[in-house]
Each structure stands twice: as C-alpha cells, then as structure tokens.
Computed example of a mutant assay.
Amino acid sequence: MKAVLSKEVGGPETLVVEDIEAPTPGAEDVVVDVAACAINYPDTLIIKDMYQFKPPRPFSPGGEISGTISAVGEGVSGWQVGDKVIAGVGSGGLREQVVVPAAKLFKVPDGVDLVQASALLMTYGTTIHGLKDRGDIKAGETVLVLGAAGGVGLSAVELAKAYGCRVIAAVSTEEKGEVAKKAGADDVVIYPRAPFDKDTSKSVAQQFKDAVGKDGADIVYDIVGGDYSEPALRSIAWEGRFLVIGFPAGIAKMPLNLTLLKSCDIRGVFWGAFAARFPERNAAHIAELFELWQAGKISPLVSETYPLDRAHEAIAKLDSRGAVGKLVVTMA
C-alpha cells in the first residue's frame, strides 16, 4: 500500500510517498481502509519535530481519518467489516490503510459523506469541548472568533450560532469574511497582517471593541495567537472567558493586569488530552455533533481535496495560513 512518510525533520517538501507493507490488526484493533485524511495544524508541526508528540521515523502525518473497516482483530466487539467510521489517530493517517484501536472509532451515520466526515473530529471536537466545557457557553452571549475562516474557526462560528449566540468573525481578508458570514457569523472584522506596532495593536483592539459592542465579548475563541491575542483580550466582557486554542501566529505574551481589570479568565483548550482522559464525555460530544449535522446546524466545509501524492501541498497551504475551511487528502 502507499503511504506518505516523514523520514527527516523538515517542512512539507521533505515528505515522500512510498509503498509499505499492508497492516494487520492486533488484539482490540481494526484495520481501516482510509477514504480521506483531513489536514490540521499539528500536521505542519509534527514533521518539523515542533509538536508535543514526536513519533519515531519514518512515520506518516495525518491525525484524523474516515474510512471503512476492512479487518477486525481479536477481542473487538461492536464493530464489523464494512462499518463506516471516523477516528483520531494522532499521526499515521496519510496512508491507504491504518490500524486503529477499536476504542478510538466513531460510527458515521448513514447518508454522511466520508470525505466531509473526515473534517469533523479534530475541528468540531475541539470546539464543542472548548465552548461547552471550557467556555461555559450560554445562549445570548457574544463570541469573538479569531481566524474564523479556517476549519476550527468555522466550527466555532457554526457551533456558537447553534447554541444561540451572537458571533463576530475576525479574519484577514474580505474573501474569508464572506465564508464566515455564510457559516452564520453576525458581523465580520478584517484585521491587518502581523506584526503589529503599538498603534496598530490599539487600532485592532478598537476594531474588536466596536464589533462586539459596549459590553464586550463573553467568549474570545483564539485560534491564532501572536499579536492578535492582546487586542482581543482588551475587547473581552466582565467575567469573560478567553479560550486559547492554537498559535499559528506565535505564542502571545499577555498583560495579566487586564485579567484583573476585567475579572476575566484565560483558559486553555487541549482537546486531545480531554478525549484521552474522558473518553465517554468526548464520545457524547461527537454524538451531539452528528445530531447537529443531521439537523442542519453544522456542515464541515471541505474547500479542497488532494490525492495522496500531493499531500505535501495541502500541508504547505495550511502552514502558510492560506486555507479556507478544511483541506482533505483522499485515497480514491
């Protein structure tokens, strides 16, 4: 079978496609014939040895997959050959077949497209955990989403609207703003490209304040980091919750006096660790996501698909922050 392999530390250009031996399932495992592998920000880091987890080389990047079970290992119950599934695998998804522990599988309901389903787990899984468990979201609140046109950002727009909130989408271009509006955003802020000097930072903070209104944002959903974080924090409401999701623009240094003045919280959101520690709660979240999908309240946006031998292009585009929605590698 074919696999994308990282054999040396580096960017997407270092990845190669090679034939490797097809896998067999161990006890409590299944083999999944991969239909699609969605690309996520950790894929840009893991090949550079900049992610929390460093699998031994050679390895395949790709943290979330969809596909069909083709073999079932000893001791597996509740799953059979032919079941349509999605799974978070951490790494290893960019290959034609993947061994997955049965405990990590989620069933794809009938009628749900497998390519689109591959874009659900990490983005919407992160966001439902972030908004509900870490953000204590309530109907009627105002939510400011930074990086609102990417996969995670659009999931935040859709879910916050599904939970009855007013959503302000912050993006870098008019085109991305239109995508966020189509996902349900009530208003859009177009921010400039970093780095910011002091005056630009103040100007962006005022943009956010004007958009969220005089009472501020009850939740700031920060997928971007860097110079964008402090201006967003300055627009937060009294007792607001600032959710830290990721850092494609760099890790921000925040003025903690603002947390005192606003009596607000800065809260980390680490979905992978949550899912590992609380699998039953995570499974309930994923079931809720499929219910929202089938009710028409969310719909993962797959903006581009790539064949396996062009997977490096998808990772490069995400790394350059050029992606709208999700980029997905297909095995057809």
Rank of each mutant, 00 (worst) to 15 (best):
A156W: 08
E239D: 11
E18V: 07
P12L: 04
A148K: 04
G268Q: 04
S235H: 10
K176I: 01
F59D: 02
F242Y: 14
T14H: 01
N257Y: 13
F274S: 07
S60R: 01
P109M: 11
V269I: 08
A311D: 07
A119Q: 06
G325M: 02
G226K: 02
D133P: 11
L256H: 11
G164K: 09
L114V: 04
N257W: 09
F247I: 09
L260H: 13
L144W: 02
G213E: 05
V100K: 00
P23K: 01
E280I: 12
P56K: 12
S263M: 13
A295F: 06
L308F: 02
D136W: 13
G184R: 10
L289C: 11
V244T: 08
H285Q: 15
K107G: 11
R310W: 09
D19W: 06
V115F: 03
E8N: 09
L289M: 00
F270D: 13
Y124H: 05
L261W: 10
V9G: 01
A38Y: 06
S229M: 08
E13H: 03
E64P: 08
Y191Q: 07
A102P: 03
F274H: 09
A36H: 00
Y228E: 02
P23I: 06
Y51E: 05
P12F: 03
L261Q: 14
V112F: 03
V100D: 00
E96R: 09
E141N: 01
G62M: 08
P101V: 00
S155E: 06
T68E: 15
A22Q: 11
P192M: 03
G62S: 01
W293I: 14
S70K: 11
E175L: 12
L154V: 14
G177I: 00
F242N: 09
P56N: 11
I69W: 04
L327M: 14
V112N: 09
V112S: 12
L120K: 04
L114A: 06
V212Y: 03
R267S: 12
P42E: 06
S235V: 06
D210R: 10
P25I: 05
E74I: 09
K317S: 15
V4E: 01
F242W: 10
K176A: 01
A273Y: 12
G272Y: 09
T44G: 06
A117R: 08
A149I: 08
L261K: 13
G151W: 09
I128C: 08
G225D: 03
G322S: 11
H312R: 15
Y41L: 06
G11P: 01
S320N: 15
I20Q: 03
K262L: 09
A295N: 13
S263Y: 10
G184F: 02
E280R: 13
